[in-house]
Design a protein around this nucleic acid. Structure first.
Lengths: 193, 193
DNA sequence: CCAGGATACGAGCTTTTATTCACAACTGGA
DNA sequence: TCCAGTTGTGAATAAAAGCTCGTATCCTGG
């Protein structure tokens, strides 16, 4: 358990190595999804990527860093989608709905992977990196429509809404009613004094 | 990776061995809490329990079974507390509040442990063992007060309410406002059409 | 209080996993 | 084309973890 960094070890500069890093991350996601946290290890990821372990260690200082990279990539994607939704939609209701849709879609596309990444994010204490921006985003929406949602702590609310949406989506009830139920929970939370 | 059962290997019959199994489970919880899923292993648990590995394997066929035992124990406790709350309280509002309090208290007493056990429960597919009874319990409350909560799928609702409560409690915002926020989410969900 | 089953022990075997390193193969510019 | 830096390789090492088994100790019924 050498005191390992969570940040990448070195940046790939040639096209070849950028592709390699891509391949590693893709394979890592697949391994995590199929084998779970327990079965997630560097040898296996390297093999799945069709790459040698040595190459993996050239860019990631250890398995934890690899996991962290996966988490960060996923978080960045979600953040970008949320930003787009918050800009595009019009009016309080539509905006909230659009953002819920983004979260639900995100958790639903690869449900197992999403759940594992959420856990890892918490485990590795990577939430703070993302939290600020996402809360700012949601908080912005809430205060822009302040008349619709009077007097609430926006950053706490933002966090709670994310938590609720993700949890319901992760829980995997009937997919047909999922959107409906998440919206009920979110609206209910926002509307209840 | 021998195909390992999740059920215990043999029942302790003498008082001595019952105490040993107790000690193992207690130590297992402590190790899990302090070292996380990553650091959770049979050698460590045995050592923490002041017991030999061999003894551990006498009662648990492997580390997964040990985890499963922990999950089951915790689930049984929560179930019992919920049952008591559902019997004691009076009226729809009070009953729902009492049950929310039980869940929040359960997740809050040892937050790290609770979160890890929730994850493990999902991971090991042990939810179904418990789900039925808890949903019955909550479903019973909802239909007993059917006038307050008209026309909802009780088992799905029960599940959603558990998920929401646990997720918010796990997320660890301000503890002072936690109860408040969980109730908002739950009431909101129940009240929103 | 003795026999025999139940219980406990822990050294140690095996397998898995993280990580390194000496070497080979590429690539882009001079 | 050739070289210096960059990249890629995979066998090898050491540590960690899962698990067994021969042996020793304890308990209970007769």
């Amino acid at each position: 358990m050498a005191a390992e960094t969570l940040s990448p070890r070195k940046q790939p500069v040639q096209a070849r190595s950028r592709a390699l890093v891509e391949a590693i991350l893709t394979a890592a996601a697949r391994v995590l999804e199929q084998a779970g946290l327990e079965g997630f290890n560097t040898n296996r990821v390297a093999e799945a990527a069709g790459v040698s372990v040595g190459s993996l260690y050239q860019y990631f200082p250890g398995k934890t860093a690899l996991l962290a990279a996966l988490v960060r990539q996923d978080a960045a994607e979600l953040r970008a989608d949320l930003a787009k939704a918050s800009e595009t939609a019009d009016g309080a209701r539509a905006t909230v709905e659009a953002m819920v849709d983004v979260v639900v879609a995100h958790q639903t596309r690869r449900p197992v992977l999403a759940r594992l990444l959420d856990f890892a994010e918490r485990d590795l204490d990577l939430e703070s990196e993302d939290e600020y921006e996402v809360q700012g985003l949601i908080g912005g929406v809430l205060s822009r429509h302040a008349t619709a949602f009077p007097g609430l702590n926006t950053s706490e609310t933002a966090r709670d809404l994310m938590v609720i949406s993700r949890a319901l989506a992760d829980a995997g009830g009937d997919p047909a009613t999922l959107r409906q139920r998440v919206l009920r929970a979110v609206w209910g939370y926002l509307a209840t004094p």
